[in-house]
Design a protein around this nucleic acid. Structure first.
Lengths: 341, 341
DNA sequence: CTGAAAGCGCTTACAG
DNA sequence: CTGAAAGCGCTTACAG
């Protein structure tokens, strides 16, 4: 049988309460007593039963998720995963609170962060837009002992405990390899469509993509980025105009989440079918585009995995328990028509 | 506050013991009393706290994993993941028992299954080799109320509760698309290397691959499968001989786990570098082959995910709790040099 | 067929 | 600085 606090207390010759004080690193125990208890713990190989501890504590994890009130499919998907997680979270004494802030608006985010009631929240996850105010707000949270993880979009690593999302530089290189390889020996131009170059993940993907193309596929030339603001209508206009003007486009990299506009344009003329297209994020639209042969590959990050991972990471910080690094790594997933989930 | 058994007991006007009997569907309660308790449960929206229940029950999950005592890297990786999971499983009152049986030997597997002490084991996961004896053994286990999941390799679905692994037909089609697309406009022959066509997953991948190539890439022609028995030496000899004889091989699909032999041959002559290669399973060898440009893509199933998923699924069956379907779906992962984890 | 009491492994006031 | 006792939300003999 696994040893319990009773065994430790017996072995150390102290009471349960003292064992508990030592286990939880509470003050007011003589150094010598602490040492005796710790020795007993090691001797017995005691490991605390966290479920029992949480039961006794009546611990409830109050986790706050701050996400952009976006209209794009990926963010909607993320929100849906959060609501899914919410259904099951009651079983784990976890309360998920979802707050939406204006997209790409650092001030709105900072205001939301500043408004957090430190006594009511045990952990925070946020889709970050970085700014001085945001950094300040995060620093205050962490000083108050509240764990913070960034989701999908990161800030400098001193301001959060963990980043849950993909490596966007590697993602950009991946897109480059796929387009380069799929284009085969063809040479020509590559169109780039992003949401906004002010967003760090889009900027990173774009830069890495350009570099990888230049390195490995000299026959391909990247055109200037179109910034569609993740808006279908804007993207549609810009891209239609571009493809009308440029007559040598063999590839297209859709960096952001404005896939609907891209799909509309690509479907508008049969000759566009020849263009090799790689986009981001698996949604109903992008899946259909893969099936229809409009998209050749989609690079995805699993929103469900990200939500569950953020929850696990926050709880692990709160309980001071270990995590399995591999389980928390968010993969750069590649989908083609044949391996859709 | 969430309602507890006390609240239910009060509401129904019965004792805790009776509430417990109803909750656990134990016999010896008058139908009318059962109805009263159930009504109270619904009225209060009561949800049982499983951690507390398990604490009271001193529940220990004894899970048995039966895996082939294989020498191939993927199975070794799986075993490593099992040992990883073992480290953390004590925290969850879970005991993992790993038993190894002779690879691809249905009788050895059946004997292991028949030898299970039903009173000591609460759930079984196995890498299946199907046979009449195996089916019989599984049926007996399930009649005894012991949940069974298959891992990586499946049996007919009436003999297990769940399959934890990839869709091998889709995997074969995925390989075909990748090779076809990467070969571009080149036409020629495609070499196929498998472990054994007697193994269902290899056979399924091969069939789906052949069909997809025939459908979509008429310029490519599949050569007869080499069966390397997942053995590096055998694979090396067979493949070297084949490539020496055939002078028009533009693609190679390594269906099984004998990647080392494949890599050796491909590195032996510079002209083999031109061959487009897709293999299965991410291991140290296959990762290096991707980095070196020997392999163009690797199709992977995440062994760590599979192990954790099998554990979650078995526990969910044991506790009769719901699972999140998306979390348990094993993806057909595509890796190229740029998105390696 | 039903209930009172003790216990699972931990924590928490309260007392000293 | 330390301990005895009660309690977290369940389950389990035991008694009737």
């Amino acid at each position: 049988m696994r040893p319990t606090v009773h065994d430790v207390a017996g072995e150390a010759g102290v009471s349960l309460a003292t064992v508990d004080r030592v286990l939880n690193r509470r003050s007011g125990v003589r150094a010598e007593t602490v040492a005796r208890v710790n020795a007993a713990i090691i001797r017995l190989g005691y490991v605390r039963d966290i479920s029992a501890a949480n039961l006794a504590k009546q611990r409830v994890y109050n986790l706050l998720f701050i996400v952009p009130e976006g209209s794009n499919s990926f963010m909607l998907g993320l929100e849906q995963e959060l609501n899914q997680a919410k259904l099951y979270s009651i079983l784990d004494r976890t309360h998920l609170d979802i707050r939406k802030v204006k997209t790409f608006d650092a001030d709105a985010l900072a205001t939301a962060l500043d408004g957090i009631d430190i006594t009511q929240v045990s952990g925070v996850a946020l889709v970050a837009t970085e700014s001085e105010r945001v950094r300040g707000a995060l620093a205050r949270l962490r000083e108050a002992g509240i764990p913070v993880v960034t989701l999908v979009s990161d800030v400098s690593d001193v301001y959060r405990d963990h980043y849950v999302g993909i490596d966007n530089i590697a993602a950009g290189r991946t897109a480059a390899s796929l387009i380069g390889r799929f284009c085969g020996r063809r040479s020509g131009k590559v169109a780039l469509v992003a949401g906004s170059m002010l967003v760090k993940d889009h900027a990173e993907r774009r830069a890495a993509f350009g570099q990888a193309i230049a390195e490995a596929f000299p026959g391909l030339e990247c055109l200037p980025v179109l910034e569609g603001r993740d808006d279908a209508a804007v993207t549609r206009t810009l891209l239609a105009e571009l493809l009308d003007r440029e007559h040598d486009v063999v590839g297209l990299y859709s960096i952001g989440a404005g896939n609907r506009g891209v799909i509309d344009v690509l479907m508008s003329r049969t000759e566009y079918r020849e263009i090799t297209v790689v986009a981001h994020e698996l949604t109903d639209h992008s899946k259909q585009a893969l099936r229809d042969g409009i998209f050749d590959a989609v690079i995805n990050q699993d929103a469900g995995h990200e939500v569950r991972s953020a929850i696990r990471l926050l709880k692990a910080r709160i309980d001071d328990t270990p995590v399995i690094a591999n389980q928390e790594a968010i993969r750069i997933e590649i989908y083609i028509r044949d391996n859709l989930p």
